[in-house]
Design a protein around this nucleic acid. Structure first.
Lengths: 341, 341
DNA sequence: TTGTTGAGGGTAAACGTTTACCCTTGCCGT
DNA sequence: ACGGCAAGGGTAAACGTTTACCCTCAACAA
């Protein structure tokens, strides 16, 4: 039995189109489309087989452009991250990419640098791309966001809620509870006068953490003095932590622990303490955690946020169109305790 | 002078199309297209002004789908990263995103997990998307790669060269020179018996580094004994470094430095040494460097690779169509010396 | 016999661009 | 007077899909 000689694609062949498939299968274009989209009762078993065969032989895959044009919707999902240099954002993006791919969606990753103008530019671009959904990793208020909100494109906010609408589609942890957990742990360790270091309270997440820590200590009878506020010059968390630790030392106040609202801040503070000759080592708390912490920061107790599962939650929110569905995915966190041996 | 009452878009308006612009400007669709694409001698100054005005009023932006369909090419650039959890890959992706955006291109980020099957799946998807170019951050040999190579889509390899064609479009550093630099520095410090720790020699970059270090020490009269080879079980660089340091200690051989082919390996090794009660602290060298190293790894001397500039080089390679152009962008590296104070 | 129904499948319009081709007008040189 | 040319701009085809609508045929009920 010899192989039937089929018309092979030349090496520089154009990508096969649905018309090629139809011709090869001996059916109309419409039939091919219906088979591929699984429209029931529109093709006999034999026809389906012939179409699938042709698809396989030609290595056909529908053109995204054609599809998008017709359906007025693409398979692109935009992820607008405030700062890709932050390992946390990168981790969320990575897990989101995997989850989206499983749904046949494609991730477009953008770095807004926390800049409203740039965020708007991306929002415009994504409207032109007819993005299926837009995911914000740290949204910032902006005119286009106001315009897009309420439009047909689903908006999903991760970690930081929509600055203009707290009741948004959301993926994140219970930051207030996390703050209480840290405070409870510190109190149980006998800590009474921690220093609280945090960035300007722009995001809902940071705010919730700070308020919870302050509240918990106050409730326990050990109020924390007003927290340090650093100018916008300290944009980077790392530098911010370093500067804050410096200030603390100069201030001369006695502290028995450092509570930082992010691991990067903790890194900065820790560095200063290590470098300073007359600073005693003291417990440090952070938020986010990270697989690298086990290796490079074994001195840092941190709230482990399950960023690896954020992606799945995001993808579910995008796919799930049920009416009454809960659009708030609050995922479990856990305080990881580490101390220098 | 009162404002002319114009037909405002309703809140839920469809995105304006070129037809809307044409109508509002009182010209044909073709003219709008030509104005927007800057075709010379095809529109009077007055017409151009009317079109631009209409574009601004409607907040029009050309539909990507329509454009792609017609031009058989999209503005998407795929970045296929071997492992997004690696901060290095994330850094390159971030800088690439910025550079692409400046060119009006859009980055699609994919994580191949170093898996040929998954890489092929992405290559197929990107063919369907009619991607403008494909950037590999750690390519792996695969059937589709062989098929796509030589096709019309530009392929750009970062750090690791095309496994099937060393003379590919490439962005990276001179890894052999970097290896020699590390060896020279170590030799100048009086180091004579370093241990060399590296992952399986799958990538061209690692291979060049290893060979250069071995060669330099041999040439100086201090040959390095055969390097450790760890099984594929140690997939993660971090665990690999830890396990290697463990093995070294058990082996009992005396070493006066550790040279690791990547910072993550160095992190792992350092952790083991820190934990081990009877290991003396010794100089550690790595490759990649990273802004975080100043904060979390002040003990690590590392070859700083300018990942922040990789993106621009990638974008240039994509945009630059000159015939005789050099398709190899070898960027400068620099050994950053750090030692525990 | 006559309708009715459902399966199976073809036709053609529409989505938003770009561009080859055509037409008109005014100007110039001969 | 006439051809040629350049500027300015319109017409319509093509890109690859999806889907509303139409058609045919067989089975089946009244």
């Amino acid at each position: 039995m010899t192989m039937r000689r089929t018309a092979l694609k030349p090496a520089d062949a154009q990508q096969a189109s649905i018309a090629n498939v139809a011709e090869r299968a001996g059916v109309s274009i419409a039939t091919v489309s219906r088979v591929l989209n699984g429209i029931a009762n529109k093709a006999s078993a034999e026809t389906v087989a012939r179409v699938r065969q042709a698809v396989a032989e030609l290595d056909y895959r529908p053109s995204s452009a054609g599809k998008s044009l017709r359906q007025r919707q693409s398979r692109l999902v935009a992820v607008l991250a405030a700062n890709l240099a932050n390992p946390t954002m990168a981790a969320i993006a990575a897990s989101t990419e995997v989850a989206l791919r499983e749904q046949g969606l494609v991730m477009v990753l953008c770095d807004t640098h926390d800049d409203p103008m740039l965020q708007d530019e991306y929002l415009r671009e994504m409207r032109a791309q007819q993005a299926r959904a837009i995911v914000f990793l740290g949204a910032v208020a902006s005119p286009m966001l106001d315009l897009v909100r309420g439009g047909p494109t689903p908006l999903i906010f991760v970690n930081r809620r929509d600055p203009g609408e707290p009741n948004c589609d959301f993926v994140g942890i219970d930051n207030a509870q996390a703050g209480r957990d840290v405070a409870a742990h510190a109190l149980a360790q006998g800590i009474r006068r921690p220093a609280l270091i945090h960035a300007p309270l722009a995001s809902s997440a940071t705010r919730a953490r700070v308020e919870a820590v302050i509240g918990s200590f106050a409730a326990a009878g050990f109020p924390i003095p007003p927290s340090l506020v650093l100018g916008p010059a300290e944009k980077e968390h790392l530098a911010l932590g370093y500067a804050a630790a410096n200030l603390l030392e100069r201030g001369g106040a006695e502290h028995d622990a450092l509570i930082c609202t992010g691991d990067l801040i903790a890194f900065g503070a820790h560095r200063f303490i290590e470098e300073s000759p007359h600073s005693a080592s003291l417990p440090i708390y952070g938020f986010d955690d990270n697989p690298l912490n086990d290796w490079v920061a074994p001195w840092l107790s941190s709230v482990l946020i399950p960023y690896g599962t954020f992606g799945r939650a995001v993808a579910e929110l995008i796919t799930d169109d049920r009416e009454g569905a809960d659009r708030q995915r609050v995922l479990p966190h856990r305080l990881i305790e580490r101390r220098r041996s």
